[in-house]
């Protein structure tokens, strides 16, 4: 092959296994989402009808437009629910395999914790912890690299947003300590 000396190869050691069993099928998720949407539509229709979904002297009331939208949403979701139900279950494809779900959780859980930490530690400390923790634990990248990357990234963010542009961000005890 020509150009073989100029190849770029990147490996993914923690890639999800192709043979991993499915956790749930697309069909099941489709049905659940349809039901949730129907429930949401009913809730919205009820609330808008309470606000007033008819006409008064000045024209349509506040709930008029959203009320009919929730009917459309509910109708479309119901249609989807019935349509999916009619399809043979045997042809359903996997929504997510166990290995894939694992990888998704590996991002979702730290992101959740990060959002939780924002309130107590402030944005900059939480970001530092998220980045170096993720790189170190999930990416298995050398700790000095993780710490350095996280520090540089957070420092740049701090300088750009806090010092230079004065954008208000959630802050915690560390910022209080250095008097920002």
């Amino acid at each position: 092959m020509p150009n073989s000396d100029m190849e770029i190869v990147v490996d993914d050691p923690t890639a999800p296994d192709d043979n991993s069993p499915a956790v749930t099928s697309k069909r099941t998720v489709d049905l659940i989402v349809s039901l949730l949407l129907i429930a949401f539509a009913i809730l919205m229709a009820w609330d808008n009808q309470r606000t007033g979904a008819s006409w008064d002297s000045s024209g349509p009331q506040a709930g008029y437009f959203p009320f009919y939208l929730s009917l459309i949403l509910g109708g479309a979701a119901l249609f989807g629910f019935v349509k999916t139900l009619m399809e043979p279950a045997s042809e359903a494809k996997a929504f997510v395999t166990r290995a894939q779900l694992g990888r998704v959780m590996v991002v979702l859980v730290p992101t959740f914790l990060f959002c939780l930490a924002l309130k107590f530690l402030g944005l900059y400390v939480s970001s530092f912890l998220l980045i170096c923790g993720f790189m170190g634990f999930v990416g298995k990248i050398a700790w000095w690299k993780s710490l350095l990357t996280a520090f540089i990234f957070t420092a740049v963010m701090f300088i750009v947003f806090d010092v230079y542009f004065d954008v208000l961000m959630p802050k915690g005890p560390l910022e209080a300590l250095i008097g920002r």
């Binding site: 770029i8 990147v10 993914d12 991002v107 730290p110 992101t111 990060f114 959002c115 924002l118 944005l123 970001s127 998220l130 980045i131 923790g133 993720f134 790189m135 999930v138 990416g139 298995k140 990248i141 993780s146 990357t149 990234f153 963010m157 947003f161 954008v167 208000l168 961000m169 959630p170």
Partner: peptide, 25 residues
């Protein structure tokens, strides 16, 4: 083209942080 060599484990958390900054700001 070399950017692709940067591991995703380094990029993902940075994207999360930028998203959070954006959403809050």
């Amino acid at each position: 083209a070399a950017v692709l060599r940067v591991p995703f484990a380094a990029i993902a958390p940075m994207i999360v942080v930028s998203c959070a900054i954006g959403a809050f700001a």
